[in-house]
Nucleic acid binder design. Structure first.
Lengths: 140, 140, 140, 140
DNA sequence: GTGGTCTAGACCACA
DNA sequence: GTGGTCTAGACCACG
């Protein structure tokens, strides 16, 4: 399972990693209470300096989606309420942002749905092997 | 027409302005061949340093959506073919990005449509006064 | 007697426990010569690793407020002179630190007293059940 | 005005600098809207690495007491409401913490006042030259 | 071994 | 010159 982690030059690497791990948690790939990779491991996985991962993890902790057990590691929060809220607000942000983008480009709602339908066929096929393994989602 | 231009701290301001002007052109607010605001004017509109606008305009020119007439200013390209292609690729990028985001959060295609329907009602209502003025769209 | 022990993330846990036990001794909750909980017991009470408690106890012994009887456990010192001195220097440290904090925030002495009066009403009421039990104080 | 900045070993340096600058702002030494020393300058003032100051400043910004103007520097917020609230909550925290400390050591309210009076004489005399210069306080 | 802090030195975007 | 990010390498507290 070799994944090359390529980063967008226009955004800090640490934020991009935050978003990726955030997404992995929200889609249940990292379960509530599960231990995240250690800072060192994650640094190797993402091929960045360990300080960058430290920053990523402290962001995750600050947002409440992860917790540190001193000397043991960093864990996904067990507070499923937080996870559900985050999943909700994340989807809201994404959907609203998408609709605003389309609106700003001058598309009507019908055109938006047309475009979506054009891409929808490939939607479920794009799951990676890694994703397929995880069926346990945060939402109940 | 007082607009507050608030910028995302995690992305260069010049790129965000590029995107906004890009969108204004794509939705026909700036017509093909129309003169864009001067660097000084745009600097005042967006409340940023004129160097930032200079960079924005050079980006727009580089992408082909704008052209410089020396001594006259910067103008939207008159090549409608370019504009149509851009609108197409822009929408592709946005739609694909949106679907990928939703997929990464673990939503099924049905859930995506559900969420969209929830926000769709307000879609057309949200047009700003500024937008309502411009009915002339690039698309055919 | 269930107490939730919440620790400040920005200071070592062992130091915080030292301070708490220190305070319990100074206010007579642990009497001179009394046996402190065993390392294992204290580890359960404070919900920390027993290594952490071991460090706490060695700190208490080093400061002279506690003594080890080999094979029996750790005991509060019977030297009441030490306890009186500690209570004196502790209060000095706390009072001086408090006044410095207030001074650094720009408060005049009058304002300090004003603020104190505002909180003084609740002072004696806040004693916990645990504290109320112990009437035997170190001071004369 | 040579000040040696000595740090407590038991707390991160960056947090201690945060607290010091916080206090300087709250007592009006840095006025609303005033520019803080640049990261490089502050690094020299406090004799720490510039990354440490960067962390300090990002903490100050996150708390809302300071703002970054891109390419210009870091400034004390001009929102006096925020400053007043912070001064209020800071004093509350300090006073409550002080009273709790004294209570935990077993002092009665009368004893607390007695101890305070003993130190009060020296209160105003302790102002440093630097502090005396600044008469303009945040509070109105 | 875990996360956290700090230094040194480099590069970049922005004004 | 400003803050921001990143790397490399070190040390520390904690369990």
């Amino acid at each position: 399972m070799i994944l090359d982690h390529i980063f967008d030059e226009n955004q800090p690497i640490y934020l991009q990693i935050v978003q990726r791990i955030h997404a992995r948690i929200l889609r249940g790939e990292y379960q509530p209470g599960q231990k995240l990779p250690s800072v060192i491991e994650a640094a190797m996985i993402y091929k960045v300096n360990h300080n960058t991962i430290a920053r990523v993890y402290s962001e995750l902790v600050r947002s409440g989606i992860a917790e540190v057990k001193r000397g043991e590691g960093t864990f996904v929060t067990t507070d499923r309420e937080i996870l559900r809220n985050m999943k909700k607000t994340s989807s809201e942000t994404v959907v609203e942002g998408f609709l605003q983008d389309m609106r700003l480009m001058g598309y009507s709602l019908e055109e938006v749905y047309d475009l979506l339908n054009r891409y929808a066929d490939a939607y479920s096929d794009k799951k990676t092997d890694e994703e397929k393994i995880n069926k346990n989602d945060v939402s109940e």
